[in-house]
Simulated assay, not measured.
Amino acid sequence: MARRITDLDQLTDSADVLLCDVWGVIHNGVNPFPLSVEALKAARQRGQTVVLITNSPRPADGVIRQFETIGVDPDCWDDIVTSGDVTRQLVKEAPRALYFLGPDRDLSLVDGLDVDLVDPDAAAAILCTGLFDDEVESEEDYRSLLEGFRARGLPFICANPDRMVERGDRLVPCAGALADLYVELGGETRIAGKPHAPIYREAMARARAIRGSADQARTLAIGDGVHTDIRGALDNGIEALFIARGIHASHYLNGRSTDGARLEAFLSEEGVAPAYWMEWLA
C-alpha cells in the first residue's frame, strides 16, 4: 500500500532529485497552486534538485512563457523537460512530409526542423500535439480522419501522451486520446513523452548536469496521472508520489477528502503501486 504523507519535506532524506509533473500538480492551466510552488521552492532550498517533467507538446520555452502568464514562480524549478523537447528527435527521424494535427499555438514544436507541413492527402506521417479545438471537440470527431491515415499505414507521432488534463475546473482531451484511438484502429504510434523512457533519460541527464551526479535510486517522481506520471516512473525504475487531487479524483473523493480505501482500490485496478500519496503537493 502507498504510504500517505502530508509534507514533501518528509522525503528529504530519501530523494536528491524530484521529477515533478506540471499540469495538475503545479497549476491547472489557469491558476498556479501556491502550496505546490512553495513546496518545490522549499525543496530546492534544502538542496534537492527539481526537474519539471511535463507532457506539454511545446518546447520548454513555451512552458516558461505560460508560467509567466499565469504566475508560476520561477524559483520552484531548476530545469524543465517537455514531451515536445524529446518529440523533436522523433520528428527528425520521421518522413519529411507531415500533417500537423493540433492548434497553431503548438507550431513552435517544429521550429528549425527540416519538415514540410502538408495537407492530409500528401502526408507521409502525422504529428499530433492535440485536438484543433479541445474546448468543443472529442477524439471521436477525428475517427474518420484517423481511419484514412491508418488505411495508408502512416505513423502517428504523439507529442503529448496525456489523455486529458484539467483546465480550470474542467477536463479537456489531449493528444494521447487521439493516439489511443489510432492504436484502437490498428495504427502505429511513436511517443517519447511520459510514460516512455526517452523523457526520463533526458530528465536524469539534466539532473546530472546540475548536480554532477544523480542516482535514480534517490530520485522521486511526482504526478497526478496514473497512466503517465506514475506508470512511467515505475517502468523506468523511479519511486513515485501520487497526487490524489488531480485528474482521477472523482474515483475516490468522498466529500472534501480522499477515501483512502477507495484510492488503494483504484491504484490496484490500474496496476500501479506508488510508494507514497498525498492530497495536494504541499
Rank of each mutant, 00 (worst) to 15 (best):
G232N: 06
I5E: 04
V30K: 13
A94L: 03
V63F: 06
V165N: 04
T82K: 00
D229C: 08
W277C: 01
E139A: 12
L52K: 04
D106V: 04
R211E: 09
P95F: 12
H196D: 14
D121F: 01
Q66T: 11
S257E: 15
E184T: 14
L178D: 02
T6V: 13
N254S: 15
I199Q: 05
L107N: 09
Q10T: 09
L234Q: 15
M164T: 12
R88C: 01
F266W: 10
G246W: 00
F149A: 02
D121M: 00
S257T: 15
R231G: 00
L178C: 04
S83C: 06
D73G: 06
N236W: 07
V272I: 10
A207W: 01
E140A: 12
Y252H: 01
E202A: 14
A2E: 00
R150W: 08
G84M: 10
I230E: 08
I238E: 05
V86W: 05
I80H: 02
L241S: 05
L234M: 14
A233P: 10
G187S: 02
G223S: 07
L18N: 00
D133T: 04
T12L: 15
L52F: 11
D106E: 09
D169F: 14
D106N: 14
A273N: 11
V63K: 04
G271V: 05
L146Q: 00
A94Q: 00
D111F: 12
G255M: 04
G260S: 11
I191A: 10
R4E: 15
H27R: 01
S138E: 11
S268K: 13
I70L: 09
I210N: 07
N160P: 02
F149R: 03
H227S: 15
A244H: 01
R65D: 15
G260A: 13
E269H: 12
A15G: 00
V165W: 01
T228H: 10
R256H: 13
A122D: 14
G112P: 15
A43H: 10
G84V: 08
I126N: 01
Y99Q: 01
V37C: 10
V30F: 03
T12M: 09
A214N: 01
R46D: 11
R167N: 12
V37T: 12
I210P: 05
V50Q: 05
A175R: 00
G176R: 03
E184L: 06
D78G: 03
R231A: 15
M1L: 10
T87D: 06
S83K: 03
E135F: 11
R167Q: 14
D229A: 00
L52N: 08
D229K: 09
I238R: 06
L117H: 04
E202Q: 13
I70H: 02
C158K: 03
W77P: 04
A273C: 11
I210A: 07
T82P: 07
V50F: 09
E166L: 15
L220H: 08
H227I: 09
G271E: 05
L241G: 02
E279Y: 02
V165D: 05
A265Y: 12
G232T: 01
G168I: 01
Y142Q: 04
R65V: 13
R218K: 10
G260W: 02
